[in-house]
């Protein structure tokens, strides 16, 4: 078939397709505009939530909320010392795709633990301070594992590490990776001495 003969064919095909395309185009574009508008509205609402949490107002957050909003809630909870409530949300952030936000949440939790330890140390209460420092170091380490270039976490881990040094002679193979349950810290205390005196 020659090029001259193909041209009218193509024009006829375009003529048949055009009215349908013209009908579909506004529908598709309007659907796209609505989806983008919804996304923008959600973003603005999340920002309002973050501002409220930063201002000290407590608002409930679900695990499906946007990641920055969950992080803001974790920071608000840790500021008030509610570390147990924060843990669940931190895990949702750490398993999500935004690992840096998870690292920042973990870091906020570690800071709270370390500040609490400082408060104990200021009152010369050494026993409760030790486990808190160990937990804080574990949390800083997890934050750095998720985000190795997190400089604030490096700095604060250095502060915590100087409070409580590791003892290499114990040949601790796992270091801060020891899976200590925060609520079962007392199991670290040595038991009764066994055997004859």
């Amino acid at each position: 078939m020659s090029a001259q003969a193909m041209l009218p064919d193509r024009r006829a095909a375009w003529g048949r397709a055009r009215p349908r395309l013209l009908l579909a185009l506004p529908v598709l574009l309007l659907a796209g505009a609505a989806a983008c508008g919804l996304s923008a509205w959600r973003g603005a609402r999340a920002n309002a939530g973050i501002a409220a949490l930063d201002a000290g107002r407590d608002i409930p957050i679900t695990a499906e909320a946007p990641a920055p909003l969950r992080l803001a809630r974790v920071m608000a909870l840790t500021r008030r010392g509610q570390t147990e409530e924060a843990e669940g949300l931190i895990e949702t952030l750490e398993t999500g795709p935004e690992t840096q936000l998870g690292a920042r949440a973990r870091y906020a939790l570690a800071n709270t633990r370390l500040r609490r330890a400082f408060a104990h140390l200021a009152r010369n209460e050494l026993d409760p301070a030790g486990p808190l420092i160990t937990l804080a170091r574990q949390d800083y380490r997890r934050a750095l594992q998720a985000w190795p270039d997190f400089w604030d976490a490096k700095f604060n881990l250095d502060v915590a590490s100087r409070l409580l040094r590791d003892f290499p002679e114990f040949d601790r193979k796992s270091g801060d990776e020891l899976k200590a349950e925060p609520k079962k810290i007392w199991t670290d205390i040595p038991g009764q001495p066994r055997g004859a005196p």
Binding site: G43, L71, R79, N111, R115
Partner: peptide
């Protein structure tokens, strides 16, 4: 200690 920092805000401008 270094401070906790604050949560980043979402940017709704591109979607808008």
């Amino acid at each position: 200690l270094r401070p906790d920092g604050s949560a980043p805000r979402l940017d709704p401008a591109p979607a808008r």
